[in-house]
Design a protein around this nucleic acid. Sequence first.
DNA 1: CCAAAAGTGTTAAGAGTACACCCATGC
DNA 2: GCATGGGTGTACTCTTAACACTTTTGG
Lengths: 227, 227
Amino acid sequence: MKVAVDVVLFSYIEKTLNVLLIKRNIEPSKGKLTIPGVLLGENENAETAAIRALNDKASINLTIDYIEQLYTFTSLNRDPRERVISISYFGLIDSNNLKKFSNIYGDEVNWIDVSTLQTLQTKLGFDHNLIFNIALKRLRTKLRYEPIGFELLPDYFTLTELYDVYCTILDVKLDRRNFSRKINSYGLLNETQYKTKGHVGRRSKLYEFNISKFNELKSGENFYFEI
Amino acid sequence: MKVAVDVVLFSYIEKTLNVLLIKRNIEPSKGKLTIPGVLLGENENAETAAIRALNDKASINLTIDYIEQLYTFTSLNRDPRERVISISYFGLIDSNNLKKFSNIYGDEVNWIDVSTLQTLQTKLGFDHNLIFNIALKRLRTKLRYEPIGFELLPDYFTLTELYDVYCTILDVKLDRRNFSRKINSYGLLNETQYKTKGHVGRRSKLYEFNISKFNELKSGENFYFEI
DNA sequence: CCAAAAGTGTTAAGAGTACACCCATGC
DNA sequence: GCATGGGTGTACTCTTAACACTTTTGG
């Protein structure tokens, strides 16, 4: 019995939600898209292995903005070769942190638009459709109840960008005014002295996530974030 | 590297929340209380192993009312003998389904009151304090956002019993009238033709959980249970 | 001055919260 | 008739949801 760690990594690129998938160039599931994964090493914990999977398979190193354990899959025939259980993770990365892709396996690395993936009902390798679907569901739930939308954006971002992240991922048209009021009511955003530039139209204030305020609220009794 | 499956099983016994703990009679952690667990078998999935752990260690067989995966613990020194990762579960059982305890290992089987455990800051074996704390947190969160309180009660139960479950586990004094109104508003309870008997005071209506209604609501777009 | 994007206030409806008395039954 | 436990209505507050125009700036 082997233990693998697989990671569903999301990024928000050009106003769409994307997921990192690797086209395998060996059997089994040769030619299919899969989520990146590695076998858990003897001397590393699962989260370290998850980061290593991203590094080895997609050269994404040390810049994961958010990662959490998703679920552990243990059904018997996940891998046709032998039994492999998968401790899966889901993660978020700011697309500005993406580097050029290459990997040590020579597999093809792709950011795939989630809505396209769903429209085409693309068959991923192994049981990765299942893992991906659970990750997407978790992302949507988390986004509503914990302030993680920021993790898909640069350190300084506009309210409109954040608003767009929410609308895109939740696939709803939120009310722009209500969104601003709501998100401001938590006091989790600091207005910076900076503004956007280099585009037509009015300049937008840039905000940053107030992580110390977040930690303070989290440690209190009654903190319920909700969008 | 071995793979274990451990289960934090809760029950509601005589108006208190209890957790199933096993006093180990061999090293390591000899004499300490631990949550029940087994090694994952070559031909079983994790949930099956979780049920087996309860059966082997506490003769609780086929009557678990609710079980879900909790978290997978992978840190390097969980077990002093060799590396063991733990796929942990949390479960609920109606105390009426409890049988006499005996187990195939000769360990002592106990239902321990959760508030006592916390007051005494009892040290459990291995890293089981960590696992227990995460399970308790999950239980409290789930109870607020999913209708699982029923799983700790018999098939037919009174609103007062359900109310008591919520107050005890969440450790708050909810308003009895608001609770009734709220829980009824979801339409998840069927009033039965039965009433309590054999006690002083007014008879209470017995309700049952409407599982088909629950499945219907769950499959819809917008079902948000909350207490 | 026009097009593009940002920013903001008010009102109505619904949900949440706080609160206390009457009902049914056994003894 | 009294002690025990069950059951229920109302008023107030707060939150949510729906809705459109003005401001800033580049070209």
